[in-house]
């Protein structure tokens, strides 16, 4: 996994300071969306090879949620942005 994440607030920090939540592209279903939609939201995840957008929490730093776009194969980090700047709540 990529070892240095360039936090937009703190600068480059080692991955040990972060907690990974997972896929940033998943949206919460409506309360009455049904069992299948909720099961998929809570449990089902893709395991992509290549570019992937994820929520990362800078737990031991500024404590902000970030959206990190990285390559799961090459470990390249493409973008890191504050999750609030994305204008979305997944």
């Amino acid at each position: 996994m990529a070892s240095l994440i360039a936090c937009p607030h703190c600068g480059p920090r080692p991955k040990e300071e972060f907690t990974v939540r997972g896929d940033a592209g998943i949206t919460r279903p409506a309360p009455d969306a049904g069992e299948d939609a909720w099961y998929a939201y809570v449990y089902l995840r893709d395991n992509p090879r290549g570019r992937h957008r994820e929520h990362w929490h800078h737990t031991s730093g500024c404590r902000r949620w970030l959206v990190v776009e990285r390559d799961t194969m090459t470990h390249t980090i493409y973008t890191v942005a504050d999750a609030s700047a994305e204008g979305e709540t997944a």
């Binding site: 920090r13 300071e17 730093g61």
Partner: peptide, 17 residues
């Protein structure tokens, strides 16, 4: 891992790490 050099981390600067 924070760069502590005076030029990058001047007096008065703080970092949670």
């Amino acid at each position: 891992a924070v760069d502590l050099a005076l030029s990058n981390f001047p007096v008065g600067h703080s970092a949670m790490t």
